[in-house]
């Protein structure tokens, strides 16, 4: 099952601290949305409000068009995959996955069948009688997913679901997560602080900062044409060059006043935007590219980070004539 989600001007306060500041967001049924941001940005607060674990100071949350005000977590068409999985240690996997159905009065055989089906869906067939402590971290994560999906929620909430896994496993699980979402068609709202994970799974990324939405859009859009300096920097390394009336430390590059943004991988030996001669300060080989810090000869106080082609071998002290293939100008308001 699936449903749309509408967050309308939601504000949340903890004491005097403003955790969410009039946030509005519409999510389509069946969409995979990632709330991305640093810790304390309000992403988990928003997830808790959707799940019904807290109530907003003001604003409305609608799921499938229905106002959720005063509706307890149990009655909401949402379920959550918790960061620490919160599996019930005293129950078998089948009992864990079947718990939601049991609470809905579903008979035991039917529960068991559904649990087996869900465990197979997440890649754990035949493990119904195991207990959580016998599983690895990745397997527990799958059980938590199966348990949350077993009651066929309209909206599945995932609170840093891969946060406890090591990097390699996380990359493998995020592909699987995307695949499972495609198969069940449920609306997924996923919270993370890892922008690579966000880009790997999301239909749309919501970048949050200090209780506000800093940017919204598909991964490509948020990465290549961010609407704020914050989201530009949070999505990955980026060079920022201050521009005033068309003038910058590197000379006249673009018109206007604001910040010129250039991704390191957009800088190379060829490009439409010439950056001039730059001296290489240090070099590190990164496998897919060569990462270097360079200082433009025109502007000794500026340092740029560049990703050069893997095949290019440069030494510190070398002088290169660099240019950018792509750039973005964020005008000051």
């Amino acid at each position: 099952m699936t449903a749309s989600l509408s967050i309308q001007s939601v504000t949340q306060r903890y004491g005097t601290a403003l955790a969410l500041d009039a946030v509005s967001l519409d999510i389509a049924a069946g969409e995979f949305v990632v709330l991305l941001g640093p810790s304390g940005c309000g992403k988990t607060t928003l997830l808790n409000l959707i799940g019904g674990f807290a109530e907003p100071v003001s604003g409305r949350i609608l799921i499938g068009g229905k106002d959720m005000a005063g509706v307890a977590p149990a009655q909401r068409p949402t379920t959550t995959v918790f960061q620490d999985y919160a599996l019930f240690p005293h129950m078998t996997l089948a009992d864990n996955v079947g718990f939601g159905l049991r609470m809905r009065g579903v008979a035991r055989p039917e529960r068991r069948a559904k649990a087996e089906e869900m465990l197979a869906l997440v890649g754990l067939p035949g493990k119904a009688l195991r207990r959580p402590h016998e599983l690895s971290g990745g397997q527990r994560q799958r059980v938590a997913l199966a348990r949350a999906l077993a009651v066929a929620p309209d909206v599945l909430l995932l609170d840093e679901p891969l946060g406890a896994l090591d990097l390699k496993l996380r990359r493998a699980m995020q592909d699987e997560l995307k695949e499972i979402q495609r198969r069940v068609g449920t609306t997924f709202v996923h919270v993370t602080h890892d922008q690579e994970e966000a880009m790997a799974v999301a239909d749309r990324i919501v970048v949050m900062n200090a209780g506000k939405i800093a940017d919204v859009g598909p991964p490509r859009e948020v990465y290549l044409s961010p609407k704020s300096l914050f989201s530009a920097a949070f999505m990955g390394e980026i060079n920022q060059i201050a521009v005033r009336d068309g003038q910058s430390a590197l000379g006249a590059l673009v018109p206007g006043t604001g910040t010129l943004l250039i991704r390191p991988e957009a800088i190379g030996l060829n490009g439409a935007l010439p950056l001039g001669l730059c001296r290489v300060e240090d070099v590190a080989f990164f496998g897919t590219h060569v990462r270097a810090h360079v200082t433009p000869l025109k502007a000794p106080g500026t340092r740029l980070t560049v990703h050069l082609a893997q095949t290019l071998s440069v030494e510190p002290g070398a002088v290169l004539d660099l240019a950018a293939t792509d750039h973005l100008m964020l005008e000051e308001e």
Binding site: G52, E55, A69, G70, V71, A72
Partner: peptide
Amino acid sequence: MSLHAAER
């Protein structure tokens, strides 16, 4: 608000 009240 009613959730808080019920919980309390």
